[in-house]
């Protein structure tokens, strides 16, 4: 059933659809059930219709679209957090998802201790983290603050540390959801440069963002999602241009 992807192919998505089950149960009390015989049924909402695309090694794909168009759901399907109803998704290589930063951080523990907790949640072993630790600390620009409890960090410092862990994981496929809004302009520029570097070294990147300039600086190809369907797929500047035009009309 699973055919092996060709050598340079990193992600292959074919005819994927996804439906969410929206259960009214959370607001349904005993009174509704027993007294009103409330007939509210589970509702099915189709989030993605028939999506297909592929990303090669060394390529970056951008996903744009309005809120609720299915961008984040697409990324969650790629990370295996959710399963599609139909269609197939094949990933070839180690995946790093930068969807949630600072997972597992404990406020009273030091930055250094939290790096270990955080990286372990991404599936890293202690000895891998030992090797990466200096790169992570250097990238975060925290210096001696790395041994302070995370509780006293500014929000910028916190996000910088969290981002450094994620971006320093050796991955073949990198998934990013609107989190380059981290830190000051200089740090943002550094992150973008790092992504470009990783791309050059053969990583495949999928980037969801509302910032056309970020998309244009990293991506080669762009998908425009509208109400869960692919409205357009193609060369980055063309699709970004069309998308921006259509946003102006609203």
């Amino acid at each position: 059933m699973v055919e092996k992807l060709e050598g340079n192919m990193a992600i292959d998505v074919r005819n994927v659809s996804k439906t969410y089950r929206v259960r009214p149960a959370t607001n349904r009390t005993l009174k509704d059930i027993f007294i009103h015989h409330d007939g509210k049924k589970t509702e099915y909402r189709k989030i993605l219709h028939d999506i297909s695309f592929s990303v090669k090694r060394g390529e970056a794909l951008g996903i744009v679209g309005r809120n609720g168009s299915g961008k984040s759901t697409m990324l969650k399907l790629l990370t295996r957090i959710m399963e599609p109803d139909s269609g197939s998704i094949q990933m070839n290589g180690r995946t790093a998802s930068l969807l949630e930063l600072g997972a597992g951080f404990h406020p009273d523990m030091t930055g250094r201790e939290n790096v270990y907790i955080n990286a372990s949640i991404y599936g890293f072993k202690k000895k891998d983290i030992d090797v990466k630790l200096n790169d992570i600390i250097e990238f975060s620009e925290l210096g001696d603050h790395i041994d302070d409890p995370v509780r006293i960090y500014s929000s910028g410092m916190y996000m910088r540390l969290a981002f450094s862990v994620s971006i320093n994981m050796d991955a073949d496929i990198i998934l990013i959801d609107e989190i380059l809004a981290v830190g000051d302009e200089a740090f943002k520029a550094k992150c973008l440069n790092t992504l470009k570097e990783m791309k050059k070294n053969g990583a495949a990147i999928v980037l969801v963002s509302h910032s056309m300039s970020q998309i244009q600086s990293v991506c080669d190809e762009v998908i425009w999602l509208e109400n869960g369907r692919m409205r357009e797929i193609g060369e980055c500047n063309t699709v970004c241009g069309n998308y921006t035009e259509s946003m102006k009309k609203i």
Partner: peptide, 9 residues
């Protein structure tokens, strides 16, 4: 829930 919704493990 934040971790479960956003990270695979």
């Amino acid at each position: 829930s934040n971790m479960v919704k956003k990270i695979y493990f």
